[in-house]
Design a binder for these strands. Sequence first.
DNA 1: TCCCAGGTAGATC
DNA 2: GATCTACATGGG
Length: 288
Amino acid sequence: MRLVEEGKNLLLTQIKDFDIKQTLECGQCFNFIELADKDYAILAQGRDLRIKQEGHDLVFFDTDKKTMEEVWIPYFDLDRDYEAIKKDLLNMDPKLEVSIKALYGMRILRQDFFETLISFILSQNKQIPQIKACVRNISRLRGKEVEHGYLFPTYDEMKDISEEELKECKTGFRAGYVLSALDSYGKGLLDEDQLKAMDSLSCNQVLKQVKGIGDKVANCISLFSLDHRDAFPVDVWIKRIMEEVYFDGQETKNALIEAYGKKTYGQLGGYAQQYIFYYGRDLNKKKN
DNA sequence: TCCCAGGTAGATC
DNA sequence: GATCTACATGGG
């Protein structure tokens, strides 16, 4: 990986194990726009970033070196060795080979905690396009306008939102859950630094005290915004494919699947989960 | 018209 | 404890 300045843009060359489409469209983040093939606007980290991939090169538009090192390299998890992660996972479970090969360029983003907290509360019992629409509605109502849309609001921008406004954003029965999360956040019960310092189990327990956060959402928040890479969210897709591949086609409780994932993949549980999730969904798309 | 979606809380047994 | 169901909204 090498940094090259090109006028106002920054070029990252010789990148490995990275694909912008796989990374953004694997269901971990919702506030981005596809401008063209492998050319996206990402509304995150309080910024509007246009990023384009050309083979092993990444173009970061209108970006300085400091922002790149302090914001985008951590955000895209580019300072982590995915070759080693994939190799370790394959040793733990050879069955992962197909999904890892299919999703060779997926990186788990290090996303903003508040945004991830609210977004994954909204995600329950919704399809990804609908989650995106919901996040977009809230951002339009309360977030800062930028070139390619609206940033997701900060806590201060969102704290006095009403239930009616949330329902206008098509949050449905999740509106009350969002209010509950805002309340806990405002009271300081959800402190990002403290949650990061805990082990993932304790972290999930704290998150689950919020009404509307259960096992699955807590694991997603832990994995996608609190550096708990051993988290293992079990949703309908994971359940389906793991019952088929690891539980002999037998109906299996979510808690048991989660325990199996954590035991099998340990610290790499979150990565394994993402590879399996994407593969399961992708396979389903091809059937239709 | 029915079924499902990156689920969860509350009721009921 | 474990299981059942209602919950908004949109798409197949």
